[in-house]
Amino acid sequence: QRITLKDYAMRFGQTKTAKDLGVYQSAINKAIHAGRKIFLTINADGSVYAEEVKDGEVKPFPS
């Protein structure tokens, strides 16, 4: 399943989102408010992988 960072954070909370991605909650808040195009893939085992689309390139998040 693929979902935006904002939607994932709204569904699970910023604290869990940060923990799942290995970053601080403040980084999640800042990324959402900056309007960054970050998409999360939720794997069947429950693990989460995030990618950011920037300038036409897709890069892992966090980099």
Rank of each mutant, 00 (worst) to 15 (best):
Q1D: 13
Q1G: 10
Q1S: 13
Q1L: 12
R2S: 09
R2N: 07
R2C: 10
R2P: 09
R2I: 10
R2A: 08
R2Q: 11
I3G: 02
I3P: 03
I3T: 08
I3V: 12
I3W: 13
I3N: 03
T4M: 07
T4F: 05
T4Y: 04
T4W: 07
T4H: 09
L5A: 01
L5P: 00
K6V: 13
K6M: 11
K6N: 09
K6R: 12
K6F: 12
K6T: 09
K6H: 12
K6A: 14
D7I: 04
D7V: 05
D7G: 04
D7F: 03
D7W: 05
Y8R: 00
Y8T: 00
Y8S: 01
Y8D: 01
Y8W: 03
Y8L: 01
A9Q: 08
A9E: 07
A9V: 15
M10K: 14
M10W: 09
M10L: 13
M10D: 15
M10P: 01
M10H: 13
M10G: 14
R11M: 15
R11H: 09
R11G: 05
R11L: 15
R11K: 14
R11P: 00
R11F: 10
F12M: 07
F12G: 01
F12C: 05
F12S: 03
F12Y: 14
F12V: 07
G13I: 01
G13Y: 01
G13P: 01
G13R: 00
G13A: 01
Q14N: 12
Q14G: 09
Q14R: 10
T15I: 13
T15E: 15
K16M: 04
K16I: 05
T17D: 01
T17F: 02
T17E: 01
T17K: 00
T17V: 07
T17R: 00
A18K: 02
A18M: 04
A18H: 02
K19G: 07
K19A: 13
K19R: 13
K19C: 12
K19D: 08
K19I: 11
D20F: 04
D20Q: 09
D20V: 11
D20M: 10
L21N: 01
L21V: 06
L21G: 01
G22I: 03
G22L: 05
G22Q: 06
G22P: 01
G22C: 08
V23S: 06
V23C: 09
V23I: 12
V23A: 06
Y24M: 15
Y24W: 12
Y24R: 15
Y24K: 15
Q25T: 13
Q25E: 15
Q25W: 12
Q25V: 15
Q25H: 09
Q25F: 08
S26H: 12
S26M: 09
S26K: 09
S26Y: 09
S26W: 11
A27D: 15
A27R: 06
I28Y: 01
I28T: 01
I28L: 08
I28N: 00
I28P: 00
I28H: 00
N29G: 13
N29C: 13
N29Y: 12
N29R: 13
K30T: 13
K30W: 07
K30R: 14
K30P: 04
K30E: 15
K30H: 15
K30F: 08
K30N: 14
K30G: 11
A31Q: 02
A31Y: 08
A31S: 05
A31G: 03
A31N: 02
A31K: 01
A31H: 03
A31T: 04
I32V: 07
I32A: 02
I32L: 12
H33Q: 14
H33Y: 11
H33M: 14
H33K: 13
H33V: 14
H33A: 15
A34K: 09
A34P: 02
A34S: 13
A34V: 08
A34Q: 13
A34D: 15
G35Q: 11
G35H: 10
G35P: 03
R36H: 06
R36Q: 07
R36F: 06
R36P: 02
R36E: 05
K37L: 14
K37P: 12
K37W: 06
K37T: 12
K37R: 11
I38A: 00
I38Q: 00
I38G: 00
I38R: 00
I38F: 01
F39C: 08
F39L: 07
F39A: 03
F39M: 08
F39E: 05
F39R: 03
L40N: 00
L40S: 00
L40P: 00
L40F: 03
T41F: 12
T41E: 08
T41I: 15
I42M: 09
I42Q: 06
I42G: 02
I42V: 11
I42K: 05
I42C: 05
N43T: 12
N43E: 11
A44C: 09
A44P: 14
A44T: 11
A44Y: 09
A44E: 14
A44M: 11
A44G: 11
A44H: 09
D45N: 07
D45I: 04
D45T: 05
G46A: 05
G46Q: 06
G46F: 06
G46H: 06
G46S: 06
S47L: 07
S47A: 08
S47T: 13
S47M: 07
S47Q: 08
S47H: 08
S47D: 07
V48W: 03
V48F: 05
V48M: 08
Y49K: 10
Y49E: 09
Y49M: 10
Y49H: 11
Y49Q: 09
Y49L: 09
A50M: 03
A50E: 00
A50R: 00
E51S: 06
E51V: 11
E51P: 01
E51L: 07
E51N: 06
E52Q: 04
E52R: 01
E52N: 01
E52Y: 04
E52D: 03
E52L: 03
E52K: 01
E52P: 01
V53I: 14
V53E: 15
V53R: 06
V53L: 13
K54C: 14
K54W: 12
K54P: 02
K54Q: 10
K54S: 14
K54V: 15
K54M: 12
D55M: 08
D55K: 08
D55T: 06
G56I: 04
G56H: 08
G56R: 06
E57G: 10
E57Q: 13
E57D: 11
E57N: 11
V58N: 08
V58W: 14
V58S: 10
V58G: 05
K59S: 11
K59M: 14
K59D: 05
K59L: 14
K59Q: 12
P60V: 07
P60R: 11
P60K: 09
P60Q: 08
F61W: 15
F61Y: 13
F61R: 02
P62S: 04
S63G: 13
S63I: 09
S63A: 12
S63Y: 10
S63K: 11
S63T: 13
